[in-house]
Design a protein around this nucleic acid. Structure first.
Length: 290
DNA sequence: GGAATCATGTGAT
DNA sequence: ATCACATGATTCC
């Protein structure tokens, strides 16, 4: 199977930065105890400090130092502070245009139940393509009903990434079609394209339980976090927090369904299907763009 | 405090 | 049936 694509065609200014940023984040989160200076990090990556600072800040909207702060336990706890407000129920209204705050990505979703999935599976065609994105190469998958899958891959792991996704819906027919998927990339990653009158159409393909979890995730506003237990409570199964974790991990629409906003009870970043570094990156990126 | 240990629901095999 | 989990609470030092 040939999935090699010419990524240079896309115009996504942030696309090339992620790899540098990823390495900075890795160093920062591994050695945060030692508080490595910008100079040290830069020399480890063979970059000049000023250049590095510029690239990072352009990408995250935050200096490396501020970024590190935004991803600490302390900060995550602040994102969690729910103060009794029923975050998941109330939040759905606040998506739009608070003053001084960018509105959240607008998504209308449609669920495809397992039964429906099986019935339609034979005929369902999924178009896919890789595109550069702020978080590395993005694999975009779409049906004619809307965006169905979004995944991320590091340089050179595209085949693996594609297989990870196709395994989820083995009965579908897959067609590479970057033209069809390219429009989604802009819509998802360019905030100036986010608007309520042109919502992003999304199809949730999964079991009933998974869909309930993902819908709950969709109600978390930008810049907030919830625990797995919060989600469990929200879907009416307060003891199922662990099952929620499993379902969150199966989220096929990384970033769009903001599974990176789910954290452990104490605010610690737990797992992420596409790598913890990417989860940190998304949280930090949101902190810088909120 | 922190490590070890349980209770736990879902989905895949 | 059984097993692996992106969890969370409890129980030991």
């Amino acid at each position: 199977m040939n999935i090699s694509v010419d990524l240079a065609v896309d115009i996504t200014p942030d696309g090339g930065d992620y790899d540098i940023v990823r390495q900075v984040i890795e160093i920062l989160s591994e050695d945060y105890r030692e508080q490595p200076s910008l100079e040290i990090i830069a020399s480890r990556l063979n970059q000049s400090p000023t250049q590095l600072q510029k690239v990072f800040t352009r990408w995250a909207g935050l200096s490396p130092k501020a970024f590190l702060q935004a991803v600490t336990l302390d900060h995550a706890k602040r994102l969690l502070r729910v103060e009794g407000l029923p975050l998941l129920e109330a939040a759905i209204e606040v998506g739009l245009s608070g003053p001084g705050r960018l509105h959240d990505l607008f998504v209308t979703h449609e669920a495809m139940s397992p039964g429906e999935w099986r019935a339609m599976g034979a005929g369902l065609t999924i178009r896919y393509g890789f595109h550069p994105s702020p978080f590395g190469h993005a694999l975009v998958m779409a049906t004619d009903r809307g965006l169905a899958g979004l995944a991320f891959s590091d340089e050179g792991c595209e085949a693996e990434c594609l297989e990870d996704m196709t395994r989820r819906w083995p009965q579908a027919i897959y067609v590479e079609d970057r033209e069809a998927t390219s429009t989604y990339v802009d819509r998802v990653f360019r905030q100036d394209r986010w608007s309520a009158d042109q919502p992003l159409r999304v199809v949730l393909i999964g079991t009933d339980f998974q869909i309930r979890v993902w819908q709950s995730l969709l109600r978390i506003p930008l810049g907030r976090a919830v625990t797995y237990a919060d989600i469990a409570r929200d879907i009416g199964q307060p003891t199922a927090s662990r099952a929620v974790g499993a379902a969150v991990g199966r989220n096929p629409l990384s970033f769009v369904v903001p599974c990176h906003r789910a954290v452990g009870k104490d605010g610690a970043l737990t797992g992420y299907h596409w790598g913890l570094t990417r989860k940190r990156a998304m949280l930090g990126w949101e902190a810088g763009h909120a």
